[in-house]
Design a protein around this nucleic acid. Structure first.
Lengths: 346, 346
DNA sequence: TTGTAAGCGTTATCAG
DNA sequence: CTGATAACGCTTACAA
């Protein structure tokens, strides 16, 4: 039984710290709590203009903010959306997360981040399910961490998946497929008789890299080129040189190298140059990302550009549709999302 | 979300999920709900071995997970921690967020991300306060988005700040101070008679950049050097050349340029080279970040390295101490966090 | 048009 | 040792 009410009636809206509740608003507005709730939830038309105004005023004066816990409890669902981020070398993760968080914010939801960690897919899935079970989020956005089966399980658990289900092309999602294919075809088109795929040498698992390497291999097979070599490139100049040197020794020149991302591509490019290999004469390099750095250095990097906004737009669509209510036309030209930006390395 | 719009009203048709509750566990274990709660909250010793076992078994069998909403409601605070991310060009944001999320996860909390957006500091603070008010998070981690006054206000609001309060040095936090000072002193030490500061030309506000430029100016004044010029560098080769060209025209050579980050530094370096300026003869460049890219290109970048793990460790400390309970020794050698990595651009 | 009352799932208090 | 019971803040039939 706290005695909070003994506070003097100060002039400015003095919000009491232990939390303003809808009961406070109701009292101040001279209505019941249900009226407050109704009005705040948009049932405005059903009430007299004056009542609505009084409630609004009280809300403003007390700086009342509904408790998420109370809402969630009665609704059976929170205003949170879980963002599942794969533990991999994804380009522009920050921008993607930020864009999605902004979209969610626009419709009144908040993003809870869930990163994959050590412990393998099973452990990560179990952590995620636990999170979903306890938070009862309004939805889940998957950035590539989950398999279709996982997503199904989550939906079964009562958690709508807001990210688009990638249509799989032989076990590779369409985005990675498009990227790798663009890289490989570009290199072949530029006349390289043999290709290689350069992974980022990283402690983390890189499923995307594996997928893309597979696609590159497929394209080579189609074109009658030999099986592409695969190298792992650390992001340190000396080590990258070692990796590239090994490749050039074991395989012939010229070789066109498709890289996991632009940083790897920069590493490969400068490693090749340091080894006195001609770029793009002996060694062709194509990255992916189109981020600024590759375009700032000399030689300018050839890369597959990747438009964050476009790639996020389908997620935005789903969010708006599922959580916002507004129905915007969904025009998503997926092929336009990826295109080759020719630099000086091919 | 703009403060006035209550978009949550249009709710999707979400069927209430049944969900396993503590009542189910209690029933299966043949005890009461309060017993379940007590046991699950660590009051194990007060119960008979057998009861504890039965409850544990029932929990496992039903895959029971406590509802965050219920907990939050009665506890007055949730198991969430808000992560306030500044809308600026921060290095390694992704890694930082990931590391913090992992730390939180270890002690049973989840991270809700809050990015600064357009609308100015006031708008962002107001959004953040709204979030804190509705979520009642267990704490807040600030990555640089908030002023000390803001942090005070949030704590007043009942939300513990888990990130270390930067000790301010003339309005600049110690991290930025150390970085900028290291850059400036290094350039002066390398013999540049005049300095300049290169911002990233970005749509977003860059308070860090401004702070650092101020510090660089201070160091120049101390050393008797003229007031450093300030340039804004877009991350496109041609535009960067324009910016650097302007600088070289209006100010003399040689000039040492401290850059907002390594990307800007790369842009400046290659712009200078393209303008046929000697690096580091005419133009010295020092970045900050120490990320891989600057060390992969030729010439290798001089930069102030910035150890993510060290910089995050103090936050981890605070999290563990405030939320975890374990008391690990806190040894944080802040001076070691930043140091100059000499490349070929100075 | 507005109010009443019944939960939602959890934890804390206190009585047995 | 264990179990009723009372909050916590909110939404929503249903009643007036």
């Amino acid at each position: 039984m706290s005695m909070e009410s003994e506070r003097l009636t100060v002039l400015p809206p003095t919000p009491r710290r232990p939390g303003v509740t809808s009961a406070d608003v109701a009292r101040l507005a001279g209505v019941s709590r249900s009226t407050v709730s109704h009005i705040l939830n948009g049932q405005v038309t059903r009430f007299s203009e004056e009542t609505v105004e009084r409630v609004r005023e009280a809300v403003a004066q007390l700086a009342y903010v509904p408790s998420a816990a109370g809402r969630s409890l009665v609704l059976g669902r929170s205003d949170l959306v879980v963002l599942a981020v794969p533990n991999t070398t994804l380009t522009n993760v920050q921008d993607i997360i930020e864009a999605i968080a902004a979209d969610l914010d626009d419709v009144g939801y908040s993003a809870v981040v869930h990163f994959d960690r050590g412990g393998g897919p099973a452990g990560n899935l179990s952590r995620l399910r636990h999170l979903v079970e306890t938070l009862r989020p309004a939805g889940l956005v998957d950035l590539g961490s989950l398999s279709p089966a996982d997503l199904d399980a989550l939906e079964e658990q009562g958690c709508p998946v807001l990210s688009p289900r990638p249509r799989n092309v032989h076990g590779v999602d369409e985005g990675n497929f498009a990227i790798a294919r663009a890289q490989a075809e570009h290199l072949i088109e530029r006349g390289f008789p043999e290709l290689a795929y350069a992974y980022l040498d990283d402690r983390r698992d890189d499923p995307f890299g594996r997928m893309r390497a597979t696609v590159v291999a497929d394209v080579c097979a189609e074109a009658g080129l030999p099986e592409p070599a695969r190298i792992s490139v650390p992001l340190r100049a000396a080590d990258a040189q070692t990796a590239v040197c090994d490749l050039l020794r074991t395989r012939g020149r010229p070789v066109g190298i498709a890289c996991s991302n632009d940083e790897v591509a920069v590493a490969v490019t400068f490693a090749a140059l340091a080894l006195r290999a001609a770029v793009p004469g002996d060694v062709g390099v194509v990255g992916v990302g189109g981020g600024s750095v590759g375009q700032l250095v000399e030689p300018r990097l050839s890369t597959v550009t990747f438009d964050v906004r476009t790639s996020v737009s389908s997620i935005r669509q789903a969010i708006r549709q599922a959580l916002g209510g507004s129905q915007e036309p969904a025009v998503n030209d997926f092929d336009d999302t990826f295109s080759v930006l020719q630099g000086a390395t091919t």
